[in-house]
């Protein structure tokens, strides 16, 4: 059995009185596409954000590649540069052109030369089908284009894990597919991905495992077929009915 890339044990986190995570255990394996569903406020974002320590846990632990993420002695920047994150609201750097959005972190964090970073950016823009937007400003892009550039920005660091937090929820319906297609390509190439989303089509096509969260807990997990077609827990069933109809 291969070692998990991410191991989360007994993770607890609350904001004031609100329990965002109550005792979550989860492992993510290399090459796996993990799909996370659940109602709003169930702790999905918090779970993703603990993996790169954008949120600290109250108790419990997170391990990335065997390294204790929550330990203050850990060089968190070295962990974060190996984990790409794609946000619902894109968060492109509005004062930088597409090229600089993609090359900034490799140059600053990994000390890649400007020339190498540019070549890599060109490759990535080909990959996301936006080669002619290299000198565009973020504000000149559509939502779908912005999110694809955000994915390219994350890929530029050559991450070992990609976290997606509702990557298509802020998009107009006609732009969802272009983003999902890029994500499907990545899944086929064997990228390890944790995806919070409600795009069941993507899950059926690419996910190896689906987890359903509710009120800060993982209520049920299984293959896409198990979860979507034969959910065991009534809460899962109720949620799916709500989302699918």
């Amino acid at each position: 059995m291969t070692e998990p890339l991410v191991r989360i044990e007994q993770a607890r986190k609350s904001f004031n009185k609100v329990h965002a995570l109550r005792s979550v255990n989860l492992s993510i394996y290399p090459g796996e596409v993990l799909f996370i569903i659940g109602p709003s406020g169930s702790g999905k974002s918090t779970l993703l954000r603990t993996i790169n320590r954008l949120e600290m846990l109250d108790s419990g632990s997170v391990w990335f590649d065997g390294i204790d993420v929550m330990d203050h002695k850990t060089d968190i920047r070295h962990i974060r540069e190996q984990i790409g994150m794609v946000f619902q609201a894109f968060h492109l750097y509005p004062h930088l052109r597409v090229l600089d959005n993609i090359t900034l972190a490799p140059r600053v964090v990994k000390k890649v030369t400007a020339e190498q970073a540019r070549l890599k950016a060109q490759q990535l823009l080909e990959k996301i089908h936006l080669p002619d937007k290299i000198h565009a400003w973020p504000e000149q892009l559509s939502g779908g284009q912005k999110q694809r550039v955000a994915i390219a920005r994350a890929l530029a660091m050559e991450p070992r894990l990609l976290l997606f937090d509702e990557p298509t929820s802020a998009l107009d319906p006609e732009m969802v597919k272009e983003v999902l297609d890029v994500m499907l390509d990545l899944a086929r190439e064997g990228m390890t991905m944790a995806v919070v989303s409600h795009e069941m089509g993507f899950a059926k096509a690419a996910a190896h495992r689906v987890i359903f969260m509710d009120e800060g807990e993982i209520v049920e997990e299984g293959s896409p077929d198990q979860i979507f077609n034969r959910p065991q827990n009534p809460r899962t069933e109720k949620f799916l009915q709500h989302v699918l109809h």
């Binding site: 954008l54 920047r77 540069e81 984990i83 968060h91 750097y93 600053v108 964090v109 990994k110 660091m157």
Partner: peptide
């Protein structure tokens, strides 16, 4: 903006 930058290892 800060979170995106931190998440990239800055």
């Amino acid at each position: 903006q800060m979170e995106a930058a931190l998440s990239q290892g800055l």
